[in-house]
Design a protein around this nucleic acid. Structure first.
Lengths: 156, 156, 156, 156
DNA sequence: TTTT
DNA sequence: TTTT
């Protein structure tokens, strides 16, 4: 094939805190679900309709997995760029199942935080850190904390 | 939610000719699968690896469905822009299944032809037409044949 | 040409409130500048560097111009999708000048609000309205206020 | 700023063969112009209209610059992903000028070939090579020749 | 300056 | 099931 493109761009909110697990080679894999929603006026009923779509995000890229683990929490708004991948698996009853995921891997993908993550009464940040709200962005090519070294800046 | 984005951008080749069916309201629905592939050198084995991903495209937009039906054939390369949607259905054994599709609907999505569709020995175009190779592009907002009216230009 | 693609995707913050002017045909044109910025650690100096890029956005699409006029104010974060266009003009000294803009027109483009627009002490919203913070999004194909009719929802 | 996005996606044709120059640090910089065009039926006159937009592409990324230098020639169709950047410069008469470019740098950007580059009678490929037509794609994170090592595959 |  |  003389070149193809497989790109997904999402802006949405995390449904839950991310899950972090370790691959056999020692690197981290971070997964979470992201909600996007649209709303419209239904012509027939005249009612306001809303539909939410849930996307499963999987991060294999070490640097972006690191940012995701440190900063992403339930409800945060993020920009995600990745590739579509449909994976086959077998459930406990032996049935074939297929799951489509948005993958950020070594070469392709981005994650950019779009809100500060500070909410009144938000006590359940992982490890109790306070997000400094500084600009944070990560690409598969490199990553860019907004100010200072990440390790200097974040108190954990 | 203060706005979200759900966008897929693909450049790939059709696996087969599209399927066309009619919705209950009389409008057309066009579906096809699109292949994107990537290749890389496997560090461990030193071998060349290739992986193809198949995407299911569903077009509800009338104008784009029309373009797709007329011009898309097996093997053609297209640019597709749509939204991710995961649909639940039940198979004949009563099992729940989920299918993720790239949807072009009334408001969002584009389809742009990226090759002329003329190949040596390509005798199996639908309805035997010869693609004129003119520029063709369609968006959910409007569509743009390259020259003349579509109905004037295409002999069927 | 067998199809081409000209697409810009930006997430950034407005530098000022938008400017609204009327075209000869009576429709509105809304313009504003959007800042995107990136930061990185300079290897040579060891310093933290930041660079801001300013983009000129021009909205010809009536519905999106309407949303922009009503809701966009200095500092708000938005997702913008449009096309690149370079325009030639002549300055007062007769010099040729070129300006590249991101255009949202009748057929292509989107605008999605990414923050609520409510800030402490933000007294300078146009016409003194309080943004309800509801989801608002507009595409060249149609637009989607988050709840209720726009005219019902917004008190001006 | 809590993260921003600055992304351009183009599919178009090269106006000329690329220009290659060397930066002070010894790395290559490849530049070319890319045409995208759109066409539509003018309601008023009833005529077919077409408008071409020219984009200036600048590649600082070494691997992608390498691919561009080897494979890109006048007329070839490519997918380009990069960032917008407006650069100020002074012309010979001392006038300030601004040029907006689509930049592929170390961290961000992609280039994917969308046609084989082989045309009947196309004798003017640089250095007289014959493009093998193999899949070629490059990202700022890594690059993927379709088969074999690039240096093995290309006879120059 | 490209492409159809 | 595509493409190279």
């Amino acid at each position: 094939m003389v070149g193809s493109v497989n790109k997904v761009i999402l802006v949405g909110n995390l449904g839950k805190d991310p899950e972090v697990r370790n691959a056999q080679n020692g690197s981290k894999i971070v997964t979470f679900t992201l909600a996007t929603s649209e709303s419209w006026n239904d012509k027939a009923s005249g009612e306001r309709k809303e539909k939410t779509e849930w996307h499963r995000i999987v991060i294999f890229n070490d640097r972006i997995a690191d940012v995701a683990e440190r900063f992403l929490t339930k409800g945060r708004k993020v920009y995600i760029e990745g590739s579509l991948q449909t994976r086959k698996w077998t459930d406990q009853s032996g049935q074939d199942k297929y799951t489509t995921e948005i993958v950020i891997d070594r070469f392709r993908g981005e994650l950019t935080l779009l809100d500060s993550g500070n909410r009144d009464g938000d006590q359940n940040s992982p490890r109790g850190q306070q997000d400094t709200g500084a600009a944070r962005s990560a690409t598969s090519g490199g990553w860019e904390p907004a100010a200072g070294d990440l390790d200097d800046e974040i108190p954990f």
